[in-house]
Design a protein around this nucleic acid. Structure first.
Lengths: 349, 349
DNA sequence: TGTTAGCACTCATTGACCTTGACTGCTAAC
DNA sequence: GTTAGCAGTCAAGGTCAATGAGTGCTAACA
């Protein structure tokens, strides 16, 4: 509901009028005239009175008149007030809910496609561009290592982590190795490195420990370095962090990007995965949905846009971030609802 | 060089004039006037003569006048003639060559990033949008199978193929299995399935053979089905075919897409991975670079575009397809050179 | 017979100008 | 405090003429 009393100098009536301006502007993208509000909303006020209120709202910085004889459009400050104080959560249609639940439940478990499907569903429902990052490298703990002979000196190494994730890679040993030898190496490594976190592998302690063990078992210590390095590569850096962008073309639907120059600029940032990563990762906490409006965004190019972001986790495990990008007049209520539904669906698991 | 004699009714002079029109139009995107050609090219002809020739060219369908008193622009037929008969390969600058060589050599071996980097480099040099697909599922032949205990009934299966590619997956067995049992299953499977192509796995023959072998060795035949299925999944479908699109924003630089409607349409197709896959995969043979001009494209949306495509292979092994998409007045010569350089670089390996 | 100069004609583009209509701000009355 | 009414502002859109970039055609020329 609207706040009962005054807020930041805004009485209830001003709040109502501001909300009306914002709601209309979100739909039409045209300046809203006093008469429009007087006719459309049953405030029991004449256009003249609304004009006076709008004049006040402009003075306070909540709305702006693009030119002298035009209606008003909301300012960033106006949107901010609306988002923080006025906005009500929108109910999704059952189809929309079903869409989200379906998209997410199908992909649950496969994290990569999960984030991608989530972005796709959100973009489809909201018609805004959606960007999802996907979490990379966790702190893996080695549970079991097994080497498999491939060809001569080439062996495949399979690493099972404490979370039962399985990774594999190939290693070229300094010399050819018989299946029996490979099996032995396997056993020694598994014994030595079981329970060790991948972060600690670089530690000199483990390297010398491995050397020692290999020596005791009569194995060539020259194999230690390539083997350790391979583990590190397989678990450490992992795949580079992925970014999925869905619904780029939606940006072009908005009149605020009809100007080709602006469309190009936005397009540019949407193609720069690194910038997107930086944009997405900053300052997200807990399950909170984060909204930055217009000039609140750091990036020059996004100063005409709003970004709604959230951290995605399943079972307290961080999966990635998701962001919905649109013009400042974006439908905050709808996007919030969609995001919340998605988060709730993941929470059920 | 230009053809010495007549070709399709075009004498040398007409050819020269057509080439001039095309070259100019590729740069300016404006209709080319007879006087422009007379001044710019030293053909020793007056604008009136060129006008006559242009009139002939129009009659033959190689050029078009957008309106009564305008210069001429090339038709699809004109471009086709140019591409097939007139166009000379453009020399790349050393920086451009270096860029390609560097991008490709760094990524050689990692196929996924190879195609992506290739697309990126090409898009960067040419300023056209570039799409790359990445090859999936080959006809794998099983060389070696090893099971690794993970947790209770869960085992990791590592499959080494005849091409020494290593795949892994996890399988949930119908019952918990001790490490010794897992090792035994490993051995039996490796023996039974070594040398078998993954395509044949669905064959009843192999299923019953596996059952028989398992029975003989005192193993539970209930494990056969999940194990075979896992192999099939790991090698058969593999990861879904990937599509990388780079330089989407470049599309907006061209005046032919200043019309938002068209820009949106193109954007749409560039986001549809399935459509791109279909578009990219058709009818590519050998090392040949394939050009489709304007209306030669099947897709309605691409009728104002040209697509230059090639199959990418390393050591006769198919890696994926690559396509460069631009307006019909795209700089065919440059794109051809870039692609050829890329192909040659891969050939050196 | 091929080439060219010259002229009439066409048409997109541009800018000036005007009209329209959608607004607001202000003032005076309620 | 609210409202009616009016003057003033401004964007958008339409008309019109001027401009200039082109072509097509014809007649003259080599």
């Amino acid at each position: 509901m609207l706040l009962g009393g005054a807020y930041l100098g805004l009485n209830d009536r001003k709040m109502k009028i501001l909300a009306a301006i914002i709601k209309d502007y979100i739909v039409t993208a045209e300046p809203i005239a006093s008469r429009t509000i007087a006719k459309k909303y049953d405030f029991g006020l004449s256009s003249a009175t609304i004009r006076n209120e709008m004049s006040d709202l402009e003075e306070m910085g909540y709305v702006v008149a693009p030119h002298a004889s035009s209606g008003r459009i909301p300012s960033d400050k106006g949107y901010r007030l609306y988002v923080d104080q006025v906005m009500k959560r929108r109910k999704l249609t059952t189809e929309q809910q079903a869409l989200i639940v379906q998209a997410l439940q199908q992909e649950m478990g496969r994290m990569e496609s999960l984030m991608q499907e989530m972005a796709r569903a959100i973009s489809y429902i909201t018609n805004y561009t959606t960007v999802a990052t996907q979490q990379t490298a966790k702190q893996h703990i080695i549970k079991h290592i097994q080497l498999v002979p491939v060809d001569g000196a080439v062996v495949a190494m399979v690493i099972v982590t404490a979370e039962n994730e399985v990774r594999n890679c190939t290693v070229v040993l300094p010399m050819s190795a018989s299946p029996a030898l490979v099996a032995k190496i396997s056993k020694v490594m598994s014994r030595t490195l079981g329970g060790v976190g991948v972060g600690e592998l670089g530690n000199v302690l483990y390297i010398s420990m491995m050397r020692h063990q290999f020596g005791q078992e009569g194995l060539d210590t020259a194999m230690v370095d390539p083997l350790l390095e391979a583990i590190y590569n397989a678990l450490g850096t992992g795949e580079p962090q992925q970014v999925h962008t869905v619904g780029i073309k939606n940006i072009l639907e908005f009149p605020e990007f009809a100007d080709l120059e602006k469309a190009r600029a936005i397009m540019g940032i949407l193609e720069e995965k690194d910038e997107l990563l930086a944009l997405l990762s900053g300052g997200l906490t807990g399950d909170k949905i984060h909204i930055t409006i217009g000039a609140e965004n750091q990036e020059q190019i996004l100063q005409n846009c709003s970004v709604i972001r959230a951290k995605i986790s399943i079972d307290q495990q961080f999966c990635g971030n998701i962001a919905i990008i649109g013009p400042t007049r974006m439908d905050y209520a709808q996007v919030m609802s969609v995001l919340q539904t998605a988060l709730a669906t993941l929470g059920l698991k």
